[in-house]
Simulated assay, not measured.
Amino acid sequence: MWERTDTSGTDLAVLDDRRGLYARGYATARDPIPYVCRYELVADESWATAHLDVSVEGAGWLRTLRLERAVGRWRVTTGEQGDLDRALVDGGHGPAGLPGTEEPERLHDAIDIDLAGAPLPNTLPIRRLGLLGAPPGTAHRLTMAWVLVPSLIVMPSEQVYTVVDEQTVRFAIDDFRADLTVDKEGYVVTYPGLAKRR
């Protein structure tokens, strides 16, 4: 269980990692508007993402997303009920836009997903690339399928993972940097500015 440090909220994940990863998560957050996010994340034995199912719900709206990766291609399926755009605008924010992506081919190079606000997906590239125990300075530039929450818009995101020491992996995207503290299995303990495991 992680407690959000950027807003009021938590993220609880129940998982089985004996052969890849099967995880079910339940997250809540107050910002940008209050919502509940449920997700199921499955990675194969190489720790590459096989599929992600997400539903996000708030007062008067619900969005769903399914991302499936097979034969090097992503399939994206979405659903929407109610009016998230109106809820965001009423809360003083801009509209969310449509869930999913109109150009799934832009995700072609992505093997991993990044679910905004959730520390768990960071473990996938850490385990898949063997960053635990790798020499300091070992770095990998990756394209991720980044899922924004609560909109569930999916976009490609260039990210860099760099080993700092045996308990720290630096995560970087554009000008943003965070030194993730991880346990001996590569699960995030502290994600500065986002969450801390309880």
Rank of each mutant, 00 (worst) to 15 (best):
D16S: 09
I173R: 08
W74L: 05
T7L: 15
L132D: 09
A172R: 12
C37D: 14
Y191Q: 01
S55K: 13
L142A: 03
T49F: 00
R4H: 13
A13Q: 07
E40F: 10
M155E: 15
T28S: 13
L65D: 12
H51Q: 04
L148T: 11
A195G: 04
G94E: 11
G82R: 08
D179S: 10
D44P: 06
S8I: 13
T190C: 09
A50D: 11
G193R: 00
E185W: 10
P119E: 04
R197E: 08
L52I: 13
W2I: 07
V76I: 12
D90V: 00
P104G: 08
A59P: 12
M1V: 13
D175N: 00
T7S: 07
R197F: 09
P150F: 06
M1E: 07
C37S: 13
E105I: 10
V71S: 15
T78N: 04
V89I: 05
R86H: 10
D174N: 08
Y191G: 03
V147N: 03
V163C: 08
G94M: 03
T49Q: 02
G25R: 08
L65K: 12
L129I: 08
Y187R: 15
L129M: 06
L67I: 09
G58Y: 13
A23E: 04
G100I: 07
L21F: 03
R106V: 06
R177N: 01
Q81K: 15
A27D: 02
T168Q: 03
L142G: 10
G72S: 05
